[in-house]
Amino acid sequence: MSAPDTRYLFVYGTLMSGARTRLGAAERLRLAEQSDSLGPASLPHAKLYDLGRYPGIDCSGGLDDIVHGEAVLLADAAATFAWLDVYEDCAPADRTSVTSAAVYERVVQQVRLAGGETFDAWVYVLCRVPQDARRIDSGRWNDGAA
């Protein structure tokens, strides 16, 4: 099975252009250099969790669940994901060498821009929701509190 062909990425935490955390600062700048922001976006049917210094998403939400973030268009998706998957502690795409230490997997989900346009974008989702993770009901990560 081949990887989906999309250069869109949905970010919702330390990589958002407006984030102000030290965690991810260098990666946020690097992502900004390698992409164009399309502005605010949302991911329907998803739940957002506070994992301490950063958030995580579970895509098994209901009709009323939504996560708010930002969509970006990557100039060179393969080059960006080469370093971004490492930063995100992402499980390998082939899933044959997944360890219990992997935090995220990168999957394609349909996202919606603020203006209503929808498209497929890569999203880093949790491999498993930690038992002690607190759900963020608003679907918006407040990096000032993290």
Score class of each variant (00 low, 15 high):
Met1Glu: 15
Ser2Gln: 15
Asp5Thr: 09
Arg7Phe: 04
Tyr8Gln: 13
Leu9Phe: 03
Phe10Ala: 02
Tyr12Arg: 02
Tyr12Ser: 06
Tyr12Ile: 06
Thr14Trp: 03
Leu15Asp: 08
Met16His: 07
Ser17Met: 07
Gly18Asn: 11
Ala19Cys: 15
Ala19Thr: 05
Arg20Asp: 12
Arg20Thr: 14
Thr21Pro: 06
Leu23Gly: 03
Ala25Gln: 14
Ala26Gln: 12
Glu27Gly: 07
Arg30Ser: 09
Arg30Phe: 05
Arg30Ala: 14
Leu31Asn: 01
Ala32Leu: 11
Glu33Asn: 06
Gln34Met: 06
Gln34Val: 01
Ser35Arg: 02
Asp36Ile: 04
Asp36Ser: 11
Ser37Asn: 04
Ser37Ile: 07
Ser37Pro: 10
Leu38Lys: 06
Leu38His: 04
Gly39Ala: 06
Gly39Gln: 05
Pro40Cys: 10
Pro40Gly: 13
Ala41Trp: 01
Ala41Gly: 06
Ala41Pro: 00
Leu43His: 04
Leu43Gly: 02
Pro44Val: 01
Pro44Met: 01
Pro44Gly: 03
Pro44Arg: 00
His45Asp: 06
His45Ser: 09
Ala46Tyr: 00
Ala46Trp: 01
Leu48Gly: 02
Gly52Cys: 04
Arg53Ser: 15
Ile57Leu: 07
Asp58Arg: 07
Ser60Met: 10
Gly61Pro: 00
Gly62Asp: 07
Leu63Asp: 14
Asp64Glu: 14
Asp65Thr: 00
Val67Asp: 03
Val67Ser: 01
Val67Ile: 08
His68Phe: 12
His68Gly: 05
Gly69Trp: 00
Gly69Ile: 04
Gly69Leu: 04
Glu70Val: 01
Glu70Lys: 03
Ala71Cys: 15
Ala71Asn: 11
Ala71Trp: 08
Leu73Asn: 14
Leu74Val: 07
Ala75Pro: 06
Asp76Asn: 14
Asp76Tyr: 10
Ala77Glu: 10
Ala79Ile: 12
Phe81Asp: 08
Trp83Asp: 10
Leu84Gly: 09
Asp85Leu: 09
Asp85Phe: 08
Asp85Asn: 15
Val86Pro: 07
Val86His: 10
Tyr87His: 15
Tyr87Met: 13
Tyr87Thr: 09
Cys90Pro: 00
Ala91Val: 05
Ala91Cys: 08
Ala91Leu: 09
Ala93Gln: 14
Asp94Arg: 01
Arg95Phe: 13
Arg95Leu: 13
Thr96His: 07
Thr96Ser: 04
Ala101Gln: 13
Ala102Asn: 15
Ala102Ser: 14
Val103Ile: 13
Tyr104Leu: 09
Tyr104Thr: 08
Tyr104Trp: 12
Glu105Gly: 12
Glu105Val: 12
Val107His: 03
Val108Cys: 09
Gln109His: 13
Val111Gln: 07
Leu113Asp: 02
Ala114Asn: 11
Ala114Thr: 10
Gly116Leu: 01
Glu117Asp: 13
Thr118Ile: 11
Thr118His: 06
Phe119Gly: 04
Asp120Phe: 03
Trp122Lys: 03
Trp122Ser: 01
Val125Phe: 00
Val125His: 02
Leu126His: 11
Cys127Ala: 08
Arg128Asn: 11
Arg128Ile: 09
Val129Ile: 10
Pro130Ala: 03
Gln131Tyr: 13
Asp132Gln: 10
Asp132Asn: 12
Arg135Trp: 09
Arg135Glu: 15
Ile136Lys: 00
Asp137Cys: 04
Asp137Gly: 02
Gly139Asp: 02
Gly139Cys: 01
Gly139Thr: 01
Arg140Thr: 09
Arg140Phe: 08
Asn142Asp: 15
Gly144Glu: 12
Gly144Trp: 00
Ala145His: 12
Ala146Pro: 04
